[in-house]
Computed example of a mutant assay.
Amino acid sequence: MGFLADLRTLNAQATAVRDRMDVGSTLAAAQQSLEQANRVMAASVAANDPVSDAARVRTTATVVAARQLPMMIGMDAVVELELIAQLPGGIPLPASRTQPLAPIQLARVTPGAIIDVSLVPGRPDTVRLELGA
């Protein structure tokens, strides 16, 4: 009878958990998380603008700060980067970028690291990491 008593206890516990569960708030939290992921993905995908691509220059940038956000996209960590890009002529341009990065690339974006980027001069919102594969 011990097995049946344990089964009855588990059934009662499961029923109590189900009764306390708020499906509406769980769905709302999932929706909010999905919207945040969509915002991050939209910010990380560069717009396909042939005019901007023609004006884009390759340069280097120094990573000032790198913060991993509390979300993952697939196996990639979402990282918020603050950069100082060096424009032609040595002019520094502060820029920021939020982007998913593969775990193997995380070591390349530590503060103080110099990375390859491309951007449209004078437009920090167009910065694109050129980390390669």
Rank of each mutant, 00 (worst) to 15 (best):
T9K: 12
L10G: 15
N11I: 05
A12V: 02
Q13H: 02
Q13A: 15
Q13M: 13
Q13R: 15
A14Y: 05
A14C: 09
A14G: 09
T15W: 02
A16S: 11
V17N: 08
R18L: 10
D19S: 12
D19K: 10
R20F: 05
R20T: 08
D22T: 05
D22W: 00
D22L: 06
G24L: 11
G24W: 08
G24D: 12
T26G: 15
L27E: 10
A29R: 15
A29I: 05
Q32D: 12
Q32N: 11
L34G: 09
E35A: 11
E35R: 13
Q36N: 13
A37H: 05
A37C: 08
N38M: 13
N38R: 15
R39F: 06
R39M: 10
M41K: 13
M41L: 15
A42R: 14
A43M: 12
A43Y: 03
A43Q: 12
S44Y: 06
S44F: 03
S44W: 01
S44C: 07
A46M: 05
A47W: 10
A47G: 12
N48A: 15
D49I: 03
D49F: 02
D49Y: 02
P50D: 04
V51M: 14
S52P: 01
S52E: 15
D53M: 11
D53G: 03
A54K: 07
A54I: 03
A55I: 06
A55N: 11
R56C: 02
R56H: 01
V57T: 06
V57D: 07
R58G: 02
R58F: 06
R58Q: 13
T59Q: 09
T60R: 08
T60M: 06
T60W: 04
A61G: 08
A61V: 05
V63D: 10
V63C: 07
V64T: 13
V64R: 15
V64P: 05
V64C: 05
A65Y: 08
A66C: 04
R67Q: 15
R67M: 11
R67P: 05
L69G: 06
P70A: 08
P70L: 01
M72A: 13
I73T: 01
I73L: 15
G74Q: 04
D76K: 11
D76N: 14
A77M: 10
A77G: 08
A77N: 07
A77H: 10
A77V: 03
V78C: 07
V79T: 07
E80F: 09
E80W: 12
E80G: 07
E80T: 04
L81K: 00
L81Q: 03
L81I: 00
L81E: 05
E82D: 15
L83G: 06
L83S: 04
I84K: 12
I84H: 09
I84N: 12
A85P: 01
A85T: 01
Q86H: 02
P88F: 02
P88V: 04
P88Q: 09
G89E: 02
G89T: 01
G90S: 00
I91A: 14
I91M: 09
P92M: 01
L93I: 10
P94I: 04
P94W: 09
A95N: 06
S96A: 13
R97G: 04
R97S: 07
T98N: 13
P100V: 03
P100H: 08
L101T: 03
A102D: 09
P103D: 12
P103T: 07
